[in-house]
Computed example of a mutant assay.
Amino acid sequence: MPGRSWFVAAGDKQEGPYSEDEFRDLITRGNIRPDTYVWADGMQDWQYAGDIPGLLSPGRAPPLIPRPGASAPSANGDQSGGSLSIEISIWEMLGRALVFLIGFLLIIPAPWVAASFYGWIISRIHVPQRGYLGFTGNPLDIWYVFIGLALLTYVGGVTDIPYLSYLLFPLQAYLSWLTVRWVVANITAEGQPLQLSFDGSPWIYIGWYLLLALSFITIIGWAWVLTAWMRWTCSNIAGTRRAISFNATGLETLWRTLVFSIGSVLIIPIPWVMGWYTRWYVSQFSASERLS
């Protein structure tokens, strides 16, 4: 429909109206991505730009140039892949994060606040061509894991045993590995279990956990360790026909995490930097066609 007006959702704000030519110019400049919410006259509801047939077709948007190591788009124009995105309110994010923290400090509520938090945040994640995800994890599935993780937060602060926190570090890593397996196994889409599994070795996972802790000695090396760890984690998610990848670089992880940390220290910017960082982090995960 020529001459219609377009609106774009940018964070918690609405931008527009844009004329058809202005909107096409935004697409050409890369300001409109597949995970951008848009609306125009005649549409019943807001939609992701990537879900509107023909909107981002070749000739209207610049070609996608994959990062080094990322999967290239298929030659036949298959658009079965793309970056994940998340729709969250910064205030709800802050509130749920505080409940999560308080629940772990109180220990007993830890399984319930953890399951609630994971279920909420996963339900806000959108996967291209699949829609929003869901979560079916029950707090009692692995209640002992969350109780153990909560108890470990007190180790070192309430005991005089030298180096006890370091000795229990592998146990904390193992409990984290169990959490990842539980979360991945309970992800759903369109109300149906995806039957995913995390097949990464617990010993390698513990190794990554220890390496990350040691990398803080280098001041900045942890960012590259973290990105490599995320790529390893994604490569060990099985049960999906599409490959899951983590595309951020170490440098991107470094400066964005530093900005998030500084904003958190200043307290007042916490809701905004938390929402900004979470949206960016989720967008670094993508699902693309597996290369045979």
Results as ranks from 00 to 15, higher is better:
T179W: 03
G157L: 14
F198Q: 09
V282N: 08
R29A: 06
G221Y: 12
W120T: 06
P193A: 03
Q79T: 02
P162F: 02
Q14G: 00
L94H: 00
P73F: 00
I88E: 06
V145P: 08
R4C: 14
P170T: 06
I90T: 09
G77A: 08
N31K: 10
L266E: 04
F100H: 10
I122H: 01
E190Y: 01
V99N: 03
C234M: 12
M93G: 14
L266S: 12
V183P: 02
F100K: 03
F169R: 08
L210E: 04
L210G: 11
L178S: 05
Q129E: 10
P111G: 07
A248Q: 03
R67K: 02
S57G: 15
N76F: 02
I270N: 01
D78W: 01
Q47W: 01
G207F: 13
D41W: 04
V113E: 01
I270H: 05
Q14W: 09
A114I: 00
G157V: 07
A185N: 10
I142S: 10
T253D: 04
A287C: 08
P53V: 02
L140T: 11
G131N: 04
Y205S: 08
P269Q: 13
P68Y: 00
R181V: 14
Y132T: 05
R124M: 10
R290P: 07
F146G: 00
L226F: 15
D45L: 05
I268D: 04
R290K: 15
W203Q: 14
P63R: 04
V282K: 08
L214G: 02
I161H: 04
S80Y: 00
G119H: 08
P68Q: 03
R279W: 07
W39K: 12
L291A: 08
I217A: 14
R241F: 04
Q79E: 10
I142Y: 02
